[in-house]
């Protein structure tokens, strides 16, 4: 899973898709995930990192991850 190359993300949570002209705002966790994806970290790697860092059950994270990915795809932010 890869974020589109030209997607611009900022640390404050803005996302701009130059291919479609759409802009997005992300909360803290979504911003963090996008940054990690940009660094080419694998989904499994990112999830482990998040489970270590946040107070969350694996199944909750799994569900929310899938939802986020579906949204990223829907917004044409994935390759």
């Amino acid at each position: 899973m890869k974020l589109r190359k030209n997607i611009a993300t900022s640390e404050t949570g803005f996302i701009f898709n130059p291919a479609t002209g759409d802009s997005f705002a992300a909360n803290g966790l979504a911003t963090e995930i996008l940054q990690l994806l940009k660094q080419d970290r694998s989904p499994a790697d990112i999830k482990t990192h998040l489970l270590n860092r946040y107070d969350v059950e694996p199944r909750q994270l799994e569900k929310d991850w899938d939802d986020l990915v579906a949204q990223l795809r829907d917004f044409q932010l994935l390759d």
């Binding site: 803005f14 701009f16 802009s23 705002a25």
Partner: peptide
């Protein structure tokens, strides 16, 4: 620039 749009919307 779109940063102004980002700023006001978010």
């Amino acid at each position: 620039d779109n940063h102004e749009f980002h700023q006001i919307s978010a």
